[in-house]
Structures are given as C-alpha cells and as structure tokens.
Computed example of a mutant assay.
Amino acid sequence: MNRTLPLLASFALMALPMLSHGKTDTYPTRPIRVVVPFSAASSADNLARALSEKLSEKLKQPLVIDNRVGAGGTLGVSAVAKAPPDGYTLLLTTSSPLVISPLIDRSVQYNVEKDLAPVAMLSTGPLLLVSSPNLPARNVQELIALLKKEPGKYSYASNGNGSYSHMAMELFARMAGVDLVHIPYKGPAQAEADVIGGQVTLMFDAVGTATSMIRAGRLRSYGTSSAQPDPLTPDQTPLAAQGGAALKGFDVFGWSGLLAPAGTPPSVIATLQTAVGEVLADAAFRELMAGRNTTLVKPQASREMAKQIRGDRAKWEQLVKSAGIKLE
C-alpha cells in the first residue's frame, strides 16, 4: 500500500483553511481614513461626509473623516502624499491645492502627478460674479464700462491669494481690460459681508452661499463663471455669453476629487473607482447633493481627473506668470 497518498491528502486538507483565508483577505479589511484639507462644514467636508456614508455601504468598511486644515489645503494634501500607498489613506479635496497652490507657493512639498494617484472626480461647479445692489451697473456690459471709466478705483474680494475666487477675477480683469484692486480675505464669510456692505465692489462667490443672498436682494449677480450653464442656477447666464468679444471663452469652475498616494495598487484603485461610480450613478444621492448646492459629475466623467489637472495647470500657469501672482 502506498502510504504517500494519504499523507499528501492530509497536508492538502490542512492547507485549505489557509488558502481560504488568503482569498477572503481582500481590500478593504479595515477602516479607511479620508483626509479633507479643509474645515468641518466646508463644501469639501460636506461632500466627504455624504460620500463616505455611501461608500461605507459599498465597501463594507467605515470611512473616517480626518480634517487636516492649514496652508490653503496643502497640509492635508502633503500628509496623504506621504502616507503608505495601501488604500487606507485617501484624500478628498477641491482642485485649488492640487492645481493652483503648487504654482504660487514655493513651500509646497508635493508633486501632484508624481505623489498622488487620481481615483475619481466627484463634483464640479462655477462661481457667481456678484456686487452690492447699489452698484450702478445692472449687467455685464455696464459693469465693464463702469470699471474702465476709473481704473484702480474699484476693488474685489477673494477667499485668499491663489483661491479660485482670486484667479477667476484676475482672469476676468485681464480679458475685460479693467484694473481692479485685490483685497484678499481669510475666508468667504467676511468677504461676502463687505461686498454686501459696499466696502468692496465685487467678488466671485460660491453658488451655495451667494444664491440665498441674491434671492434676498442683498447681492446682485452678473452671471456664472463657467462657459456652460449651471444646472443649480438655471436663471444665471454664463459671463462668456454676455461680455461680448472680451469675455468670449471665459470659463472658470472648481471641482473636487478623490485621490490616493502614488503607488497604491491598481486593484485597490479599481475597487474604489467602481464603488464611487455606483454612488455617482445613484439618482437619490445626486438629488440629495443637488439640494446641498453640489453638482456631481456623471459617472463616466469621474475618471478624467488626470486630464483635468493637466488642462487646469496649463491655463492657470500662464495667468500666474503674466500677472505675477504669488503667495504673500
């Protein structure tokens, strides 16, 4: 009798549990940390919390929000860029610290294309050009004429150097041929209040906060910064369609996305992309976020972040150089 066969069979039976365990040990097996480089209740934070709840259901693991605030979002981005590339530390951020900050801030210590791996674009949206209702210009053409009349007399508020509200106005001023004084603020609340009060002339404001003030008659809107109409503000016309030849092609919009450290396994990225795509395709979730003034990208567009980053950087790099914009 051959005693080798029973012995081999015994070893095979002993190995089955180990093989079975190896098959079930697939990503994710523990909680995932999602770094948001902005404060709680910011637009990025609100999206992160809503998305994380849905992704937790898909991935069968909790996603824990970690607000890493500071330096215009670059501290949080830097933390993720240096994190282990295992899929358990992710970044949910707006586009500014990915695209603009590296162009104007020499202290930025990460290279977006080398240190981070795009997972999915999540949302996109324009800004609204607003002023006090008392400003004697009722449309874009009248506004440009007024600003040209007395160069350097009028001012604009921004959420800080390098913010999208800053860059959008610099582009507007250059295309329209007007001279404006820049007054940077540390955030949108006081900037908006000073525009309402007339201490500052203009501002590119977020749709979420500006809309309520426009409806209340406390702000006047001249239109959206994106070339395409915004589904959240169908009553607002793009500036590019109103400003004649001067503003033809004017197109500024911010976006948010989910990223991982560079070197994260492709299988992990694919798992995340599939889960995010399913959430973005959920009609109820899209309606929920629209009610919160957030326009989600279409699922098929969610994987175009790398292309978007390259295009944005090329556009803003040209403006930064020509206008001499830098972090002060």
Rank of each mutant, 00 (worst) to 15 (best):
E113R: 06
S78R: 03
L280K: 10
V130K: 06
A314T: 15
L319R: 10
S163I: 01
D205S: 15
G187K: 09
P231Y: 07
N139A: 01
M169D: 02
I309P: 07
A48D: 09
S10G: 13
F250Q: 11
V178D: 03
D282A: 13
L143G: 02
R218V: 03
L127W: 02
R292D: 09
G22K: 10
V268F: 07
A176K: 06
A240P: 09
S39Q: 14
G217A: 08
F172Y: 04
L288W: 08
S78I: 00
R292E: 13
V252C: 08
V268C: 08
A157C: 08
S322F: 07
G187Y: 12
Q273A: 01
V77F: 11
F253P: 03
I214P: 02
N46M: 09
I309L: 15
S42T: 15
L288T: 10
L75F: 11
Q273R: 15
L91P: 12
M1Q: 04
A301V: 00
Q242C: 05
P118N: 06
K54V: 00
A283L: 09
A240L: 10
L51M: 09
V279M: 14
N46F: 00
F38V: 08
L98H: 05
G152N: 14
L7A: 13
P37T: 09
M203V: 00
A48K: 05
N159G: 12
A40M: 12
K307Y: 01
Y222I: 03
E53R: 14
A227C: 09
V181R: 14
M18T: 04
S96H: 03
G291L: 10
M167V: 01
S132F: 04
V181Q: 13
P6H: 03
P102V: 06
M175I: 02
S132Q: 07
L272S: 05
A191I: 07
Q308R: 15
A44N: 13
A301W: 02
Q199H: 04
V108N: 10
T24F: 08
G73P: 11
G257R: 03
A275G: 09
L258I: 12
A9Q: 06
S165H: 01
L91M: 14
A245M: 11
Y27N: 03
I100W: 05
D282Q: 13
L280A: 11
S56V: 02
K307F: 02
S267G: 11
S101P: 00
F250P: 12
P265T: 13
T93K: 05
P28Y: 07
L180G: 10
L147V: 05
P28E: 12
I104Y: 11
F204W: 08
K148L: 06
T264V: 10
P234R: 10
I144P: 01
L258W: 11
S131Q: 10
P299S: 14
A227V: 12
K307N: 08
M1T: 06
F253K: 15
K153E: 13
A262G: 04
D25I: 04
F253Y: 15
V80K: 08
S96K: 07
L327C: 00
A216P: 00
L319Y: 13
A227K: 08
A120Y: 04
V200F: 00
L122V: 13
S107M: 02
V77W: 10
A306P: 02
R68V: 15
